[in-house]
Nucleic acid binder design. Structure first.
Length: 564
RNA sequence: GUCGCAGUGGCUCAGCUGGAUAGAGCAACGGUCUUCUAAACCGUAGGUCAUGAGUUCGAAUCUCAUCUGCGGCACCA
């Protein structure tokens, strides 16, 4: 019986019969402050039926209640406050964590079901920006979280490797570029052509016609055009790979837009067969006015397909290939309309599984309050941000721990970790204005703070050497200084499932900060390494904290250096 | 115009399905390293939770309206 069940049972013996156990369980809450106990039962709802003031009810309940198994049960105002037996509780939880280790918190609500996650999806020949970072790290973290909940995530990098921008790129390259230049620094030089193209096209609209012509050649299978496309794609991909390596992200599929080129005719045919395709203003659409949405443009006036056509093909392909239980798209919230349409069209096509598609939207990153724009050259290069962060981390190490052995690796872990953590710390939907100083901050509520806490815990464990605390019979720890930390460790499984249900890595990030803070407080106020009866239990606590902190960081995709 | 998202101390944000005096972190000020890593810890100061109604025993949390900001709104993705 867990502690909550114990409380429900205890209460149900003294509360009027018309209040069901489930109802009691729903009413039980956690007080804001530990001084008020570990759980509380508000008595307001009993006031009417008992014709008594809530304060009196709480007092009477406490007088009647059986206190066995608790440290104490008292009333404060209208609340009945429960204080758990610290020794027993800590003994249970610490044993569990030390036994299960990295499996602690594992759950099986997913039952192995496949969950494709559309994430990252940078555009070929453009640098990865902070926006792509968001999609990448959020998707990666969600993959790890749902994997712990028993799902099988499939990480798909839906590369932007097709479209009219390649026509522009080819024009730009032919006019202003050279092979040597591109080989030397592919992304930046390709970007240079792209930005210049847009600048010059403002004056010379005929450039746009040229670009369209080149893209048409690509679609028609022209050898020269496709050779250039293949080359750009290959160079870009290997540049992207460098960033993914640093972020520790791997993909199960790189099927991007081009992959669906030969799969769209079938989709359009099906839409037509179901009688959904209409002509409007020279284009072919699916009318969605019944769903209060603007029409889905399936084919342009010139016969070319569009974004949604491709996404329909992709959605169907993924259902056929993976037979998913859910299909996730980690894409900015400015596209929420698009996903509503996508789901609506699928539904109209008779695919009920469209309900299993979820748009995991996130807020956009701005600079000085303005949206980033590749075309205007207003980008924040992810690589620069990572480099700056790592440099700063290196500097900190030189200052604070100059004797550290693998400084460069640790600087990489800390710098990159700070950037990832910063991105995941807040709710996904929040917009944020990019501020380098804030992103690479190492103090306070940051990734490095959590990493540092873990490193200190590990340092203690290194110091004790061969004390066999892990197999000790008793890990009973009634030290009030340690109590908040113990309770937080116990909460971890609940936190993981909440993060999974909401597709919200910030739940994990916030939790890791709370646990780190709580442990740092304990650390600052208690001497852990003293020879007394409590040593085993304290070491078990330190070990448990480090296990859970490392797991939390891991779920976020952040490394946890042993020393820093 | 319309739809969506948001509005909490100087700044950045927590606040779970409504509940006990609204919490953190930065920044400011003041303390704590001969003792387990001071990337830490402790303290002080700072908020009529955008505004106005409503529901409720009880609202930052739910409903409606208003204001402000951001984003989307047919041939980009």
């Amino acid at each position: 019986m867990n502690s909550k069940e114990l409380i429900v049972n205890t209460l149900s013996n003294v509360v009027p019969d018309d209040i069901a156990k489930e109802q009691i369980e729903k009413l039980i809450e956690k007080p804001k402050s530990s001084d008020l106990g570990d759980y509380a039962f508000p008595t307001f709802i009993l006031a009417k039926s008992l014709h008594k003031a809530p304060n009196m009810i709480a007092k009477d309940l406490v007088a009647e209640i059986n206190q066995d198994g608790f440290e104490k049960i008292v009333n404060t105002g209208a609340y009945v406050n429960f204080f758990l037996d610290k020794g027993e509780f800590s003994n249970d939880i610490l044993h569990t964590v030390l036994k299960e280790q990295a499996d602690y918190g594992d759950q099986n609500q997913g039952k192995g079901g496949n969950v494709p996650i559309d994430m990252s999806s940078p555009n070929i020949a453009k640098p990865m920006s902070m926006g792509h970072l968001r999609s990448t790290v959020i998707g990666n973290s969600i993959a790890k979280i749902i994997s712990k909940l028993g799902y099988s995530p499939i990480k798909i990098n839906h590369l932007g490797d097709w479209g009219t921008q390649f026509g522009k790129l080819i024009v730009g390259y032919k006019k202003w570029g050279s092979e040597a230049e591109v080989e030397e620094d592919p992304i930046n030089n390709l970007l240079k052509y792209y930005v210049r193209f847009h600048k010059e096209a403002e004056e010379k609209p005929e450039l746009d016609d040229e670009a369209r012509a080149w893209f048409k050649k690509m679609e028609d299978g022209d050898k020269d055009a496709l050779a250039l496309w293949t080359w750009f794609r290959k160079l870009s991909l290997s540049e992207f790979q460098k960033v993914y390596d640093r972020l520790g992200v791997e993909f199960d599929s790189y099927n991007g837009e081009a992959f669906y080129n030969d799969k769209m005719d079938d989709v359009i045919k099906t839409i037509q067969e179901k009688g959904l395709l209409e002509e409007s203003r020279g284009a072919e659409i699916v009318d969605l006015s019944a769903q209060d949405l603007s029409p889905a443009l399936i084919r342009k006036t010139d016969g070319a397909t569009l974004y949604i056509t491709r996404d329909l093909a992709a959605a169907i392909y993924r259902k056929n290939t993976y037979n998913f239980v859910k299909s996730l798209y980690v894409v900015g919230s400015e596209q929420s309309e698009h996903f509503k349409k996508l789901k609506a069209v699928l539904k109209m096509m008779g695919y009920d599984w469209s309900d299993d598609i979820h748009h995991i939207e996130f807020g956009l990153i701005t600079t000085n309050g303005k949206k980033l724009s590749t075309r205007k050259g207003r980008v924040i290069l992810l690589e620069n941000v990572l480099n700056d962060a790592v440099d700063l981390a290196k500097k900190q190490i030189e200052e604070k721990n100059p004797g550290l052995e693998n400084k460069d690796q640790v600087a990489e872990d800390v710098g990159v970790g700070a950037v990832i953590f910063h991105d995941l710390k807040n709710e996904r939907r929040d917009n944020f204005d990019f501020n380098l100083e804030e992103v690479v901050r190492f103090e306070g509520e940051t990734g490095p703070y959590v990493q540092y806490t873990n490193a200190r815990a590990l340092s203690i464990l290194r110091k004790v050497g061969d004390v066999d605390y892990a197999s000790a019979d008793s890990m009973s720890l009634s030290d009030p200084e340690a109590w908040d930390t113990i309770k937080l460790i116990q909460e971890f499984p609940e936190i993981v499932s909440r993060a999974g249900e909401k597709y919200e890595p910030s739940v994990i990030a916030k939790y890791s900060l709370k646990l780190a803070k709580s442990f740092n407080q304990y650390y600052a106020h208690s001497k852990i390494l003293t020879e007394d009866d409590g040593l085993n239990a304290r070491l078990a606590l330190v070990k448990s904290v480090s296990i859970v902190l490392q797991m939390s960081l891991n779920l976020l995709g952040v490394n946890a250096p042993e020393e820093m």
